[in-house]
């Protein structure tokens, strides 16, 4: 069987891109290798670890469980994109202040998921946060500091 190629068009981090790629390329490989946005990481490539979490048309998804071809026409945001828009600057600062990351490999995916949590603008207990974030694996922190950081920003934002 020969390699089937496909030309994909989408917006990534606000910029339109067009590339011709093997059709089997998943979204995060596309973003990393074709576009050079290396902030989204591959931890397991079977949808368990959450390191590859990216936003597609407003929703956080596993970037390894979606073909790049499926994102035709989509608006894709990665950690680099939402860093530049400043959407979660407060959370990122809090992650640094609270040391809610160590090796940093899970962090982009963790932040992409947390961004969705914060977008709900609802009161969340620590347990709610833990439950919402439970699809993102971190081997370093033991999670406590991550919960602290998210809880603190969610509360700050709700207070206005």
């Amino acid at each position: 069987m020969s390699e089937e190629m496909v030309t994909v068009n989408m917006t990534v981090n606000g910029e339109p891109v067009t590339k011709t790629i093997p059709v089997r390329t998943h979204l995060v490989d596309f973003i990393r290798t074709e576009l050079g946005f290396t902030g989204s990481h591959l931890g397991c490539e079977h949808g368990v670890c959450g390191a590859c979490s990216v936003r597609v048309d407003g929703d956080v998804v596993r970037g390894c469980l979606m073909l790049a071809a499926q994102a035709e026409g989509a608006d894709v945001m990665t950690i680099e994109g939402i860093t530049d828009t400043g959407e979660i600057a407060d959370l990122q600062d809090k992650f640094v202040e609270r040391n809610a990351l160590q090796c940093g490999f899970c962090t982009p995916g963790m932040l992409m998921t947390a961004a969705e949590l914060l977008s709900h603008k609802s009161e969340m207990s620590r347990n709610d946060i833990r439950e919402f974030m439970s699809g993102n694996y971190c081997r370093c922190t033991g999670y406590h500091a991550i919960v602290d950081a998210i809880e603190s920003i969610n509360n700050e934002r709700l207070k206005g």
């Binding site: 949808g47 929703d59 956080v60 469980l65």
Partner: peptide, 12 residues
């Protein structure tokens, strides 16, 4: 439904 996987999986 809350038992079905995690947010990123439920979104897709």
């Amino acid at each position: 439904m809350p038992h079905v996987a995690h947010v990123a999986i439920r979104n897709r």
